[in-house]
Design a protein around this nucleic acid. Structure first.
Length: 119
DNA sequence: CGCATTTGACCTGCGC
DNA sequence: GCGCAGGTCAAATGCG
């Protein structure tokens, strides 16, 4: 995680928000190309939340498409994708290295459709 | 019956 | 140019 954040900092300027009222950390990363001359504009949002399970249902239907073991942490990393058509939003879920009780959920992209309402 | 999930392999990108 | 790491895809299986 630390290395990844460093990577983001190296390529863009991340904005970090902290939820003092609860155990969560929100990191907004606006990836604007800085040195390539291109105009790549990707947005990445990482949520670090204290949770027992890694399947945080945020109202969308996610389809798991991959699992990977990162060297940085002994924990596996899960890759999810929005099941809606035309919606290429990707979600990455992994546990915190220092605090296994924390789950780091990273969203990439924006939903081009209205998400299913969950009451 | 349909769809989501699972695991391993393959491919691409970046670093050295 | 090669090696490593990360990310993605695809086929089979299980469950709803």
């Amino acid at each position: 995680m630390d290395r990844e954040i460093k990577k983001w900092i190296d390529k863009s300027i991340p904005v970090v928000y902290r939820c003092e009222s609860s155990d969560c950390l929100i990191i907004l990363v606006g990836m604007n190309q800085t040195g390539k001359g291109e105009k790549l504009t990707k947005e990445k949002v990482a949520f670090k939340t204290k949770s027992d399970i890694e399947i945080l249902d945020d109202g969308f239907k996610w389809r798991k498409y991959g699992k990977k073991m990162v060297k940085n942490s002994p924990n596996p990393r899960n890759y999810y994708r929005c099941s809606a058509e035309g919606c290429s939003v990707k979600k990455r879920v992994e546990r915190d290295v220092e605090d296994p009780s924390y789950v780091i959920t990273t969203y990439e992209g924006v939903h081009n459709h209205e998400g299913p309402f969950r009451s």
